[in-house]
Write a protein that binds this DNA or RNA. Structure first.
Lengths: 248, 248
DNA sequence: GGACAAAAATTAGTCTGACTAATATCGAGA
DNA sequence: TCTCGATATTAGTCAGACTAATTTTTGTCC
């Protein structure tokens, strides 16, 4: 008798996944070129020696993946531009403090350059948007939820002022990864650090806004760099304090 | 008689897509929590008033999207960590010269900061890797394909030297968007600009490598910025020349 | 009662056949 | 040659059956 049962290994291989994988491979390899029509279902049925249900579910999978599109009465066609693999940071990788700092570093890189581009290229309207966002942070004051949102809008206004939508979209993506924790941080900090903390933040914001307003590219980058590095350091300090507190 | 036929609007809505969308919405809204089991197929069949084929193809779609997973004999379960929407630049958006420049701007932002981080944190081994990559560019000389690859490795070595895998991965993603065209550019340039062009590139590379070697964070950033801005300008100039040439 | 095993019920996977609706193809007529 | 209509092709949907894996229930023995 074996000492322990062999690991079950939930083989979720099914005919559907097999057929989908083989079809996907054929497309990848170029056997079916973009724009080209796949063989009709009944042909795939006999070639793969499976039922039509299996073929249809496999095609439904590939359609969901954006690999093909179906046209009723016509056929299934390979999509023209099969998207390159997207950029994705696994949420599972954003769990520890160091890993979050790594994400913040990438975000900082983009925001720093965004501040520089904004200073160089912002329209008068965009400059006004940044200034308004800054004022809004002052107005909301201590409400931590509102403050977090106002802070977000400030950074968003800067990204928009670059005139390059990729910056806005990328920062939007990064935010989705770290914002939940950041909000906690801000709430904690504001309840602890209170006025002094908020004023320091606002001084940093103000420096950024001024540089963008006067078109000082280098100054905007430096100000944003100081702001984000400061934020990251504050985050790390807070995290270590929180840990020390929970261990005591 | 109408002047022109009404736009066909290929409505690719089907029962399958509808059911999949509604189920996805129920999951998004939290009606079905992660880890929870979906109602069995025959229940969905009567609730949505569709056949089992439709339900199954809808579930196959969601499975392909990573939203759920099926366990034969047990049920369909909502995946625990439904990934956040990834960052993706549509290839369709990377077709014109200005749009490519926008992508290059985002790439530059990340590479500039990567150079700074590399200068600050690189291990001796990583510094050596960067230097070796630089030397390799010299060695391959005029072979445009090899040169493009060596150039890529140089930038890759710098990203690796940050010690932050997100930088490497992000630049890898960006490369997948613009490299095909860049290679063409390099080939054209090398055949036209020849030695002078290569030597200028290598001087820029060398400046970056030196700054990283001695741990000059600001210098590394500046050198990388000059290099990438120069590259973008050269690309734009080449593109406009190519256009002028094709029009003549 | 509790632990274990067998039986039953539940559930997803697969197959078959049919019909519908949209599209594509072909041929006859102008 | 072009247009229009009939025909063929094809994906979408429905229905029912059977298989295989899992879960639940039941029954038995201790």
């Amino acid at each position: 008798m074996p000492p322990v049962a062999i690991a079950p290994i939930p083989r979720d291989r099914t005919l559907v996944t097999d057929v989908a994988a083989r079809l996907a491979q054929l497309i990848e390899s170029g056997a079916f070129a973009p724009g080209q029509r796949l063989p009709p279902e009944h042909v795939l049925t006999e070639q793969f020696a499976v039922s039509r249900s299996v073929v249809r579910e496999a095609i439904a999978s590939m359609r969901a993946e954006g690999l093909v599109n179906s046209r009723r009465g016509s056929g299934v066609y390979v999509n023209e531009h099969r998207q390159s693999q997207p950029f994705r940071i696994s949420l599972a990788d954003v769990d520890t403090v160091p890993s979050i700092v790594q994400v913040l570093e990438l975000r900082a890189a983009v925001e720093i350059e965004a501040a520089g581009l904004a200073a160089r290229r912002r329209s008068p309207q965009q400059a006004a948007d940044v200034s308004n966002a800054l004022r809004r942070i002052d107005e909301v004051g201590h409400d931590s939820v509102e403050a977090a949102q106002a802070d977000l809008h400030f950074h968003q206004a800067i990204a928009d002022a670059t005139g390059n939508a990729h910056f806005s979209e990328f920062l939007n993506y990064i935010r989705g990864l770290v914002i939940p924790r950041q909000r906690v941080r801000i709430e904690t900090q504001t309840s602890l650090g209170s006025d002094a903390y908020l004023q320091m933040l606002q001084r940093e914001h103000c420096r950024i806004e001024q540089a963008i307003a006067v078109g000082d590219e280098v100054g905007a980058r430096d100000a944003m760099r100081d702001h984000l590095i400061g934020s990251a350091q504050r985050y790390q300090r807070w995290a270590s304090e929180a840990r020390a507190q929970s261990e005591s």
